[in-house]
Design a protein around this nucleic acid. Structure first.
Lengths: 196, 196
DNA sequence: TGTACATCAGTGAACGCGCGTTCACTGATGTAC
DNA sequence: TGTACATCAGTGAACGCGCGTTCACTGATGTAC
């Protein structure tokens, strides 16, 4: 009946705090989660996170950076596997729904340390994975800003993910988010697609 | 030098509280604004808002309802004036940027009383203004869910507004948001437009 | 193999703070007669 | 026109709470020699 002795050193407290923070953010909303509650969940003193993240903003920044890293990984994989720009959009929405807390923090710069190197690098990596492939599918017009198609694509999937996450779409549509994304994204850049 | 006597009754405290709340939300972020600070700004005791909104959630719900009412008004006006679906999108983005606090609260259902009658009515009114006109411009395919084009359009403008508001687009693009919206929205449903 | 010492990781108490809500109250207004 | 009374709108003190941060500390680990 001896209680398992919790070692003084946690082993991977940084990882554990990030995971607990994600749960907290998903439950309470980004910005409203509590550093003390996160520490409580992990079973560690509430001053412990300081050694890994400095302060609350540091923790959220780490969550956001991790989010952009994961997103970049999934976009890269989707593009490599399918070569389809539409499937890149599906991957974006899939990521947002499966990583709600990360996604919500990633786009709340007011809560983050915007100059954090890991955050900046990860964000740029994932942006590059959108701005590259979009060239294969958009029909450009003379004089148009070349970034417009990329912004259109990003807006579409970002908006769709946001509307789904905030519960603004009817349940019949959101029950199969991938199908919804395909049905919706089909209306973007249709000119370049084979009429089917 | 007599101080202006503040009358015991405010006159239009409800209106004043709503306005102050909007400023607070814009500054601190939705959910992080403080009811006491709102009352302080208006120069009224911090218990006064209770008579008009019940509690904090009630105040935010009123802000959201007002937001949907204003949005519906602007969409209606834009459609009546131009009959252009693209200009409807421009109006949506214009509204979001000009009414940041309203816009942010409108899509944070976790902060609202979702069954508030005024909120529900205003939300449905603005949704109807999108779902109707979209039929004039989308090219439907057999077997497709008829709501897909509306969701596509909504996602695009909602995502664009969100990305601009969160500072995720380069400044050169966002300095003229209406032009940006037109350049971006042009890629949606282009099949039905005159080639030009 | 041992030892001294620096560094790292986590503790627990304490700080000061602002918050949302409740409560009994009072001033002002409106209405019935 | 006056008066009694109900209702509405706002006050100010008090409540209990959880928060982020700081601080001196201690236990554990790693490294130089």
């Amino acid at each position: 009946m001896a209680e398992p002795v919790r070692p003084y050193h946690h082993g991977d407290l940084r990882r554990a705090l990030l995971d607990a923070a994600v749960v907290e953010i998903a439950e309470r909303g980004p910005g409203s989660e509590s550093l003390r509650e996160v520490a409580r969940q992990v079973g560690v003193s509430h001053a412990a996170p300081r050694h890994h993240f400095g302060d609350k903003r540091g923790l959220l920044t780490a969550v956001a950076a991790e989010g952009f890293e994961r997103l970049a990984g999934e976009l890269r994989a989707a593009w490599a596997a399918t070569g389809s720009f539409l499937e890149l959009g599906v991957a974006y929405v899939r990521f947002a729904l499966a990583n709600r807390a990360h996604f919500e923090v990633m786009y709340r710069p007011d809560l983050l340390r915007g100059d954090d190197p890991a955050l900046v690098a990860a964000r740029e990596a994932s942006a590059a994975l959108l701005y590259g492939p979009v060239g294969t599918v958009a029909d450009m017009r003379a004089g148009e800003d070349p970034r417009a198609p990329a912004v259109a694509a990003w807006s579409l999937v970002h908006g769709l993910a946001t509307l789904v996450l905030t519960g603004n779409l009817p349940g019949e549509l959101t029950s199969d988010p991938e199908a919804l994304t395909r049905a919706v994204a089909r209306h973007l850049f249709p000119a370049t697609r084979p009429a089917g």
